[in-house]
Structures are given as structure tokens and as C-alpha cells.
């Protein structure tokens, strides 16, 4: 169980530009949150604050009520793991299993071999155990990057742009994989531009624009607000746009799933 909270967090990379300007939000244990917005809105900066890789220039970020300023990246990563946009950024080992073992050894786990086996099974990568991480496909690389973090079972997982470079079948598999992680009680926070993927996998959306939170609510409420989505340079998901065309304007939980939309259309047709 881990809680992450930003309290009036500001961050500047120098040169007079604030990447984040007074962000305040709280992520409860077990939530699935999508952080969205246009390029340069501060999404990646925000998750790097959650992980302690960056420290706020003003305000504070708390992980389990402890300021990230008072903890090392390794201490925070033990609870809040992070998967980067480009999996290649972290691969260096000769084999897939060595790649998974890297973090476990850094954290001093004794049962490395057992955890590697579990992570390989969890990510369905057993058959690639002895292969080079660089020989895997895009989707497999992404799953390996996630598995290499999940191996030490952090309470929360931050994922930067999980669907970049993934084809449809890989996205479907990734969505199922993330839901499985969530079903184990883990918090999942993803940075993404992919509204359909976010609709499929998350229950809450936080919209950022120019370093400020402009929307933070249940995902169906955020995604049904075309004006708000426009301000974050995002298009509504296909299902929400379809419903708008059909004249259905009252969003409800689960509205963005195909099954729910099917029922709604059937109901509209009967009327």
C-alpha cells in the first residue's frame, strides 16, 4: 500500500521555464491513473517527481507521507517503480533473466532466482530467458521492462508512454498485463497520449497543460468533456465521439467500454 501526494509542486529545469507550476494531487493506493496532456505539458516531469528522480524546486512530493527530498531514488523506487518510455534505455545485460535480476541484486534480494522465474512467467517471457533483451520484439521489450521492475514488487508502477511503438495486438496484451498488475492491488500511473488505451485501462485521468492540472476526475467524465480535452490538445476516445454523434450526452461509469456502448446504442434504437 502506497500513497503518493504532490503538494503545490513546482519544478524548473533552469533557464527560466517552469515545467510544473503548483501541481497538487493525491494518488490513493490501488488506483489506475492516466496522466495526459500535450507535449511539454509536464507529464514525464511529474512522474519523475513521484519516483524521486527529480526533486521539486518548490512545494513537496510525499510518498507514504515522507518527502521525496529526504529519500534516495533507490529508497523510493523500492516502493514506486518506474518504467521508461524507451525500454532500450535500461537494457544492458546479455540475457533476459540477467536483465530482470539486475534490480533485484541492487536491492539486495536473497531469492533472486525465484523472483526472476516469477517475473518471467508473469510477463510470458519464459522462452526468451537466455536470449538477448535486444533481440525481442517491441511489445516483448516493453513487457520485459515492466517485468524487470515488477520483480521486486513495488507498491506502485509508473509507466511513461506504454503504447508508443506498439501494434494493436501488443496493446491488447499490454492492457491485460497492466490490469493483472492492478488486480494484485498495485497502483498504476501511466503517462500517455493514447486516449483509447487510457479509457481501456484507467479509472481516473489527470490532464496537464503548461505545467498546471486542468482536469482531475473519473476518466469517463474527463473524456466526455470535449472542450477540456481540447485544452489539453487531446481528442476524445473513439467511443465517446461515437456516443456524441448518437446524441448520448450523459456519461456513466464504464461508458467507454465497447460492451456498454453496445447496450446504450441498442437502448437508443429501441426508443
Amino acid at each position: 500500500m502506497v500513497e503518493i501526494e504532490a503538494k503545490d509542486a513546482w519544478f524548473s529545469y533552469g533557464r527560466g521555464v517552469d515545467a510544473l507550476r503548483g501541481v497538487s494531487l493525491r494518488i490513493e493506493s490501488g488506483e489506475r491513473v492516466a496522466i495526459m496532456g500535450e507535449n511539454g505539458a509536464g507529464k514525464t516531469t511529474l512522474v519523475k517527481l513521484f519516483n524521486g528522480l527529480l526533486k521539486p524546486t518548490r512545494g513537496e512530493v510525499l510518498v507514504d507521507n515522507v518527502s521525496t527530498r529526504n529519500s534516495s531514488v533507490a529508497q523510493i523506487s523500492r516502493k514506486v517503480g518506474m518504467v521508461f518510455q524507451k525500454p532500450e534505455n535500461q537494457f544492458f545485460a546479455e540475457t533476459v533473466e540477467e536483465e530482470i535480476a539486475f534490480g533485484l541484486r541492487n536491492f539486495g534480494f536473497k531469492d533472486v532466482s525465484k523472483r526472476v522465474d516469477e517475473a518471467l512467467a508473469f510477463a510470458s517471457l519464459e522462452k526468451y530467458r537466455g536470449k538477448s533483451p535486444f533481440s525481442l520484439s517491441g511489445g516483448e521489450k516493453k513487457r520485459l521492462a515492466i517485468a524487470s521492475v515488477m520483480a521486486w514488487e513495488p507498491e506502485a508502477l509508473l509507466i511513461d508512454e506504454p503504447t508508443i511503438g506498439q501494434d494493436l495486438s501488443q496493446k491488447v496484451r499490454l492492457a491485460a498485463f497492466l490490469k493483472e498488475i492492478s488486480s494484485r492491488g498495485k497502483t498504476v500511473v501511466m503517462v500517455t497520449h493514447d486516449v483509447d488505451f487510457a479509457a481501456e485501462t484507467c479509472e481516473r485521468a489527470v490532464l496537464l497543460s503548461k505545467g498546471v492540472v486542468i482536469g482531475d476526475d473519473k476518466i469517463e467524465r474527463i473524456f466526455s468533456d470535449a472542450e477540456l480535452m481540447g485544452r489539453a490538445s487531446l481528442l476524445q476516445p473513439s467511443m465517446a465521439r461515437l456516443l456524441e454523434l448518437l446524441g448520448v450526452d450523459k456519461p456513466a461509469p464504464g461508458l467507454l467500454g465497447i460492451g456498454e456502448v453496445e447496450k446504450l446504442i441498442a437502448g437508443t434504437a429501441k426508443r
Partner: peptide, 16 residues
């Protein structure tokens, strides 16, 4: 920039 990204990724996996 690449070096910084990789450094961040490895620090997130407990490298100190």
C-alpha cells in the same frame, strides 16, 4: 541527454 536518461532508468532500478 541519452546518458542522463539511461542513468535515470538504472537509478530507478536501485543502481547507486
Amino acid at each position: 541527454y541519452e546518458f542522463q536518461s539511461v542513468y535515470d532508468a538504472q537509478r530507478s532500478r536501485g543502481l547507486e
